[in-house]
Design a protein around this nucleic acid. Structure first.
Length: 113
DNA sequence: AGATTGACTGCAT
DNA sequence: CATGCAGCCAATC
């Protein structure tokens, strides 16, 4: 293998790939699941991700159930399109309901109102 | 080898 | 509800 050691990044990519179709996960959730890394690492990993990784980065959103404003480009718009493609509908405020689309491993406490 | 950055998160103001 | 600040740790320059 290459001189590069897999390290945390590789783990994050693998974890993100574990996200089932039609579900979403937050950075913090993934960070906790991977362990040893923080939400920033996940975000940074996503920023460094490439189509070659085949990572469904569009299934990764922030804790607010919102698409990260990211830095440049209108990629966020693309992300919304991809999410809808997965069958995930966004709220009127472009927000995702973790209780409905959230990863089964990421239950935000079921508080039925 | 040191400084900077980065698609985050949570709490305080 | 919007804005600000601090904590996190690794990759990149």
């Amino acid at each position: 293998m290459s001189t590069k050691t897999p390290s945390v990044y590789e783990r994050i990519y693998v974890t993100v790939r574990e996200i089932p179709y039609g579900k979403v996960a937050s950075y913090g959730q993934i960070a906790r699941m991977v362990g040893g890394c923080t939400a920033r690492m996940v975000g940074y990993a996503m920023a460094s991700v490439t189509p070659e990784k085949e990572v469904p980065w569009h299934r990764v959103i922030n804790s607010q159930g919102r698409i990260s404003p990211r830095a440049r480009t209108s990629g966020e718009l693309l992300q919304k399109e991809l999410l809808e493609e997965e069958g995930i509908q966004l709220d009127a405020e472009e927000r995702i309901d973790f209780g409905t689309y959230g990863w089964e491993l990421a239950p935000p406490v079921g508080r039925n109102s």
